[in-house]
């Protein structure tokens, strides 16, 4: 370590007075989805954003992804302003957004094909896609098409596709929102197991309070009209977390705290 410059680590993601505005259809005015939001996210943390529908949590995530242009304010990743999607970030979508004409392996390969990491041949990409298919527990299903898979399996493909490009930041937009409760819990545990291997910075949007607590180092609670942050809660629960975690006293206390804000 260089003794001359001991600096405090800068936040991995910085959101600075971010405002996101949508035009309502048929010129019925505008909708303020996110209003003047400030947020710092440290490298390697798992942050969940929880709040009711329409509180702007997805808009916030998509702004960080570079898929939504802010009306004012800005998002910085590693200190650099975000203006478009980049190789340092990958998104997992609520509706999976898998290509129905591609097999599991080819869907996982999709992001790799678009980004083409330097020096990798087509064969390398397939090999890498194969590793990530295995990582999310879909070995043996490489040549299935999405319609032949259950919802949970489809989102595993979505997660593998995002991880395969090896981003620094994983952005998950209500990824388990369309799954049944039991599958959702299983997927949460597995996502944590994968995350704990390399501790990428993760931002996870949900409207499930328990899910938000179970996964997070930090919970961002948002409210609507206009979309804003009402509270940031640091979660002090030991990892690795298990089903028992959700029965602990502290877990129940966090749940009460969040309910109060909502």
């Amino acid at each position: 370590m260089d003794a001359r410059t001991v600096v405090e680590p800068a936040p991995h993601i910085q959101v600075e007075s971010l405002t996101v505005v949508y035009e309502k259809p048929k010129a019925a005015g505008t909708l303020i989805a996110v209003s003047n939001v400030n947020l710092d996210i440290a490298r390697g943390t798992f942050v969940t954003i929880v709040g009711p529908s329409g509180c702007g949590k997805s808009s916030l995530l998509l702004s960080i992804a570079g898929l939504v242009k802010p009306a004012s304010g800005c998002v910085r990743v590693n200190g650099k302003p975000v203006s478009a999607p980049g190789r340092d970030r990958a998104v997992v979508f609520q509706d999976f957004a898998l290509m129905p004409w591609r097999t599991v392996i080819d869907n996982v390969r999709f992001g790799l094909e678009l980004q083409r990491p330097r020096g990798l041949t087509g064969g390398d990409l397939t090999e890498r896609a194969c590793r990530y298919v295995e990582l999310v527990g879909l070995k043996g299903f490489e040549h299935y098409h999405p319609h032949q898979l259950s919802g949970g399996m489809r989102q595993r493909v979505g997660i593998a596709r995002a991880l395969a490009v090896d981003p620094e930041i994983l952005l998950l937009d209500e990824p388990f929102g369309s799954l049944d409760a039991q599958t959702r819990d299983e997927m949460g545990s597995e996502l944590l197991a994968i995350w704990e291997r390399n501790k990428k910075t993760a931002l996870f949007v949900t409207h499930g309070i328990d899910e938000a607590i179970f996964l997070a180092d930090q919970i961002v609670v948002m409210a609507r009209d206009p979309g804003r942050i009402t509270k940031i809660i640091s979660v002090d629960l030991p990892r690795p977390r298990t089903v028992e975690t959700t029965d602990s006293k502290r877990f129940i206390e966090y749940r009460r705290q969040i309910r109060e804000c909502l």
Binding site: L67, A90, F93, A97, G111, Q115
Partner: peptide, 14 residues
């Protein structure tokens, strides 16, 4: 064409 496929492609800098 499903808009979500296009957004997914864009998210990978397409």
């Amino acid at each position: 064409v499903d808009g979500s496929w296009i957004v997914a492609a864009r998210s990978f800098s397409a």
